Amino acid sequence: MTSDLTGARVLVTGGAKGLGLRTAQAIVASGGSVVIGDIDEQAGADASTALGAAASFVTLDVTDDASWATAIDTAVDNLGGLSGVVNNAGIEIAELFFDLTAEAIRKILDVNVVGTALGIKHAFRAMRPGGRAGAGGAIVNIASVAATIGFPGIAAYSASKSAVDRLTKVAAAESGRLGYGVRINTVCPGLVPNAMGAKLAVDMEALGLFPSVDEAVGAVVALTPSGRLATEDDIANGVAFLLSEDSAFVNGVTLSIDGAMGM
């Protein structure tokens, strides 16, 4: 059971698959409407169709400023306003420090950091007083437990997600001081056994950090006091809370949904 989102109008980036899709589903199930923004046009269109009349799709490359401007305008038009943005789109590339490549680092930072920063920028422009939506709202940035622990093989990814957390703090301070009426919070999910999580486990074996995929997953569970991996529902419900009026005085926080792995 998620928080009541009746009347919420939300853009979810990376919403065609995985956690982004589950978040979009939770928003619709809780009474809101959603625009899925994704670079994968076919998957995004299919996801939107499956969600029904409360959902639509817009092509969005989060690394591109002009693409963001178009996507926000489309979201406002399709939804009849905008009350929330979930900056979920992200990528993960596993490399040992010994083999780090500038190309992979830049790609991760471009999507995870630049993409989130541009999302905050354009959400502010739309939702602040005088913007096209203009009634305030909420932004939820998706980071990772990797921002809070030192797990091997994911240095650039971890750095990017730590940066997302810092972006959130600064954005919350600016929004408050300038009277935007927009709350900004971060969610740090634990490892989720979806396609992205499974790829990480495979990468850990390939890098020689663990003898098998099962042992890589087992190591994560062993580091988690709650004794299990996260589910997409665990994360989506937390995002729904931060979008809802139930969290009206929650601003600039980092909500770790990781079973205490990152404590």
Rank of each mutant, 00 (worst) to 15 (best):
A45M: 12
N194P: 09
E103I: 11
S3E: 12
V86Q: 03
D99K: 14
L100V: 13
G190K: 02
G32I: 02
R9N: 01
K107Q: 15
L178K: 12
L200E: 10
L223H: 15
I91E: 01
T23G: 02
A135S: 14
A89L: 08
P211K: 12
V85P: 00
A89Q: 03
K199M: 10
S158H: 07
A260L: 13
L118V: 02
F249A: 11
T49E: 12
D61A: 07
G150V: 12
G208Q: 14
A69M: 11
G131M: 01
E245A: 13
K169M: 14
T49D: 14
S83F: 02
V28M: 04
I72W: 08
A248C: 11
P189E: 07
A159T: 15
W68Y: 11
A138S: 15
N185H: 03
V221F: 11
V111K: 06
S256M: 05
L207Q: 09
I142R: 00
R132P: 09
V114A: 13
I139A: 09
T63D: 03
M261C: 11
A50Q: 14
S175Y: 02
F98I: 11
S3Y: 05
T6L: 10
K161R: 09
S226V: 09
G31V: 04
A75N: 03
A69T: 14
L19H: 00
A171C: 04
A219H: 06
R22W: 09
G262F: 05
G181P: 06
G15M: 06
P152T: 12
E205R: 13
D77F: 05
G52S: 06
G52R: 06
S33E: 03
E95C: 05
L200M: 14
G80K: 12
G137M: 05
R228L: 09
M196W: 02
V217S: 04
F241W: 09
A123N: 01
D4W: 01
S160V: 03
T231D: 02
A146D: 10
A201Q: 08
R22T: 14
P129N: 07
V10D: 05
I39G: 07
S226P: 01
V113E: 00
R166K: 15
A54S: 15
A26V: 10
A260T: 13
G84N: 08
G150M: 08
V35E: 02
L60E: 04
G7A: 00
S56M: 08
A16W: 00
S83R: 03
G262C: 09
T231K: 00
L21K: 02
A236M: 05
A156R: 06
A47D: 03
M204L: 15
V145L: 11
G7E: 05
Q42W: 05
R166L: 15
R9Q: 07
A133F: 04
T59E: 10
S30Y: 07
G197Y: 00
I91C: 08
S83A: 06
W68H: 02
F97L: 15
F124N: 14
V140F: 01
E103Y: 10
F97N: 10
D73Y: 06
K107T: 14
L5W: 05
T49I: 13
G90M: 00
K121L: 06
A104N: 14
G37T: 04
G15N: 03
G134R: 10
N78W: 00
R177P: 02
S48K: 03
G119D: 04
A94L: 00
A155L: 14
Q42C: 07
A26S: 15
A45D: 13
